[in-house]
Every structure is written in C-alpha cells, then in structure tokens.
Design a protein around this nucleic acid. Structure first.
Length: 274
DNA sequence: TCCCAGGACAGCA
DNA sequence: TGCTGTCATGGG
C-alpha cells in the first residue's frame, strides 16, 4: 500500500483498492455513482472519489478519518495470500480484488443493517436516504446520518418512508441506543459485543455480525446471509452450521473472506440472469 | 405474476 | 433447543 496525504485529499496507489469493489460489495448503503467516480457519505462526513490512471483520489476535509475509514493501513496483499485456496476463494479474491472492509460509524451501521433484513439493496439505500433527508443535519449540500436522539421519532414515521415491518425495530432500537445501550460495546470482546447488539430489536445473529464487522472492524466474523449460504451449499457441501464452519476455516481473516465470497457469488448470479 | 431479498421474531413441540 | 409461519415492500 502506498498513499500520500495532502491538505484536502488522499492519493492512493494500490491495486487492492478499487472503489467500485469496495462500495458495491454490500457493506455500505450511502454512496452515489457520479460521472467521475463516487461520492461516499459516512456519519456527517463526505468523501469524493475519483480515479486517475492507477491512483485513487479521495477528496475530503478529514483525511485522518477517511484513512481509517477506507482501512488504508491494512495490507490486503498478505490477507489474500493467507486465505487463497486455488479454488473458489482465489476466484472470488481476483473478482473483487479491490474490496476493503470499511470502518463505518457504529450507530449508522446498526440502523442500516436493521433495515437490511430480508430486503433488497436498492430499497435499503432508498430508505436510508429518506431518513437522512428528513432527520439528518444539513451539512451544506448533503445530509448527515441522524443521531440516535433524532431517530427517536416513533414507528409511524418509519412506516411512512417504506421501512415496512422494520419500522418498530428502528423506533425501538433508536430509543435504546439513545438511552445508552451501546455505551460500552467498543471495549467489549466480540462475543459480549454481539450479545449487546442482539438485545436490540431487529438485530439477530447475522445483522449483529455485519455490525461488528463493518462498524467495529471485528474481522473474526463471517455473516451468513442468503448469498454466503449459497456459497456454503454450492462449494462446501452445505449442512447446519455454516457460520462455525467458516469461522474455523478462516479465523481472524473470516470477515475478509466472507466479503470476497459474498460479492463474487452475488455478482455471478446477477450476470447469469442477464 | 411470481419469487426473492445482506432475516428477525413469536409461537410451538 | 430447534423448527415453522409470518412479517412489508418492491426489484427483477
């Protein structure tokens, strides 16, 4: 990895950082594609990504924040080498070679993945966008993700914006978090942190794993959803406990492997439908 | 029109 | 503890 931090940008030269792969692999729901690249929103911040030759330019006010956000100090080359198997994993690594696991805002990640349950990504993005539009602070040209307090607006609002049966989960969990339900989560070990999250309404095992992985950087987790279950069934014989299988197989690299496999499997099926 | 989606939850055996 | 039906909504 090589990157240079300037006044209002970060210039990244790394074959293992491709904005399309990192942003479109289902870990993030608040970004837009533009003619020049992408705009990414994180909490109350914004970054504008463009590519020139082999350099990705991250335009932003807070370079230190986005250096961490895009996980620029992690060596993805060695991760890829550790998990490569010459088979499906290697294929997935090469397909999504520019994926990086983002370090997202915890509260935003919690609410986003509550919305994600049994939902399509375009619809998840739309619901989150409406929440920011209606409840987020005006940052001058864009909206921030609202605070827990601002999301304590009651179930009816979330129904109105199309959240469906997740409306009650959002209202109730926003209240619980505003009241301090996650105050000690960052210091907790992974198992305890997962237990704290699963006390929230709308957070089960899979959603908790996504929050821990994408919001707290706990890469020793492997969220099992419809796509990673297909991977388990198609390439590893299937069975009862896919999660334990992958955790044993990949250990502290599980989160990276999961994201390569998820993106590969999902995109592959998409192409097959066309 | 129908199946499915980054599933969770309550009720039941 | 493990299984099953149900829950909104809209993408494809």
């Amino acid at each position: 990895m090589s990157y240079i931090i300037c006044d209002n940008c970060i210039e990244v030269r790394d074959e293992f950082f491709v904005p399309k792969h990192t942003l479109e692999c289902g870990q993030l729901f608040r970004y837009e594609e533009t003619p020049d690249g992408y705009v990414v929103y994180a909490g109350n911040r914004r970054a504008i990504l463009s590519t020139r030759g082999d350099t990705v330019i991250i335009g932003c006010d807070d370079t230190e924040y986005f250096r961490r956000y895009f996980d620029l100090d992690t060596d993805y080359s060695s991760i890829r080498t550790r998990i490569a198997d010459g088979g499906i994993i290697s294929e997935a690594e090469n397909f999504g070679k520019g994926i990086r696991i983002l370090k997202q805002e915890l509260f935003e990640t919690v609410m986003s993945f509550i919305i994600s349950a049994n939902n399509h990504i375009p619809r998840i993005k739309r619901i989150i966008s409406r929440i920011c539009r209606d409840l987020g602070d005006d940052m001058g040209g864009y909206r921030a993700f609202p605070s827990p307090e601002k999301m304590c607006v009651g179930e009816d609002y979330y129904k109105e914006i199309g959240a469906g049966y997740r409306a009650a989960y959002l209202a109730e969990s926003a209240r619980a978090i505003a009241d301090g339900a996650l105050e000690e989560i960052e210091q907790a070990d992974t198992e305890s942190a997962g237990a704290m999250l699963m006390k929230l309404k709308g957070v089960g095992r899979k959603v908790a794993d996504c929050i821990l992985l994408f919001g707290l950087g706990r890469t020793n987790l492997f969220p099992i959803d419809t796509w990673t279950r297909k991977v388990y069934n198609d390439y590893y014989g299937g069975g009862k406990d896919a999660r334990s299988f992958f955790l044993n197989k990949f250990g502290s690299d599980a989160g990276y492997a999961q994201q390569y496999l998820y993106y590969y499997k999902r995109e592959l099926e998409k192409y097959r439908r066309v």
